[in-house]
Design a protein around this nucleic acid. Structure first.
Lengths: 180, 180
DNA sequence: TGTCTCATGTAAGGGGTTACATGATTCC
DNA sequence: GGAATCATGTAACCCCTTACATGAGACA
């Protein structure tokens, strides 16, 4: 379960409550989970049972109590071990390709429209990406090298969508060869 | 559940048994499911209950009986309806980016090694891709346009990995700026 | 003798999602 | 009065994966 390591990573940067982690997951595009309660609160419980994190309960007035989690020494070791393991193969799930596989039953207008829709969808995603990148200023940059790493993560996400966009545009363009 | 539509698609091309479908899913990279029994046999059952497919049992000697599934008229209509719906956003899951996010704790040698591993992994995936593309000859090509669509699917998968490869190479190269 | 192919199916469990539940405060 | 924010948690359900089960014939 990679999500536990993603949480461990964040806690290695700064201690947080489940609620804060939830928000981070919700709007970090490279953290590809939805950030729902079930996952985060359960993961924190498991991490705590495994001795990789601890928490202290902080009482607030005018707001509910919260549990501030922080990483343990064992957690830090476990994190480093994981970072150095062989990277997993990235997963690409594109239901659109399955639509395309059987799209020859569509008329040329219908096909054109389908491609145009996908192009718009990818453009939208790319813009979301850019917006998020511009908004984020409070990421870890404890060293120039760390800042570089985080920039490259953003570049990766954007170039993934850009590559998809270039592809669908080429497909749309080449489709015209089959028209008359 | 997209897998049911993927199955419907194949059955719209030619009737098949669950066993045959399983093999198709196992080595079609754009069909991003593992192609395990549970999924395929259950999906076929659901499709059949919904009246989108039917089957006839074929007895063989020297081999177990099999169920040959074929698409119904209702199934064809359902498939066309789905193909014309708004394409879903592609999903990209890259655990490597999470490793990278916290990789500043590594030494330069360790970081270099991590990047080199990822590069090799992507190269391997790209080669798998190419091999499969070269091997596949018995795909639907009932019209030049259909052949074009299937070629573009392969191009998509390859360019996705190529884009990832270009990115990791650039990252590796730029990393040298932080060395001394 | 052991493994591979053909062929269908089940069991168990992990991972992920949405929705529900509570309860105070703040903002419109 | 109603929605949003803070904060933690549970329930129900779907999807997906690995592994198990059966049983015949082919091949080394």
């Amino acid at each position: 379960m990679t999500i536990r390591y993603a949480i461990l990573g964040f806690l290695s940067w700064k201690e947080s409550s489940g609620y804060e982690l939830k928000k981070i997951f919700e709007d970090s595009p490279y953290l590809y989970w939805s950030g729902n309660n079930n996952q985060i609160y359960k993961s924190l419980l498991q991490l705590q049972k495994a001795g990789l994190v601890t928490y202290k309960t902080v009482h607030q007035d005018g707001a509910p109590s919260k549990k501030i989690y922080s990483i343990t020494k064992k957690g830090q070791e476990e994190l480093k071990k994981w970072i150095m393991t062989a990277p997993a193969v990235p997963e690409f799930k594109k239901p659109f390709l399955i639509q395309m596989a059987w799209a020859d039953i569509l008329s040329k207008e219908e096909l054109k429209a389908l491609f145009a829709r996908y192009e718009k969808e990818i453009e939208t995603q790319l813009n979301f990406q850019k917006e998020k990148y511009d908004r984020e200023k409070d990421w870890p940059n404890r060293s120039p090298r760390e800042t570089f790493l985080w920039n490259m993560i953003s570049v990766n996400l954007m170039s993934t969508f850009q590559s998809e966009l270039a592809w669908i545009r080429k497909v749309s363009q080449q489709l015209s060869r089959f028209e008359e």
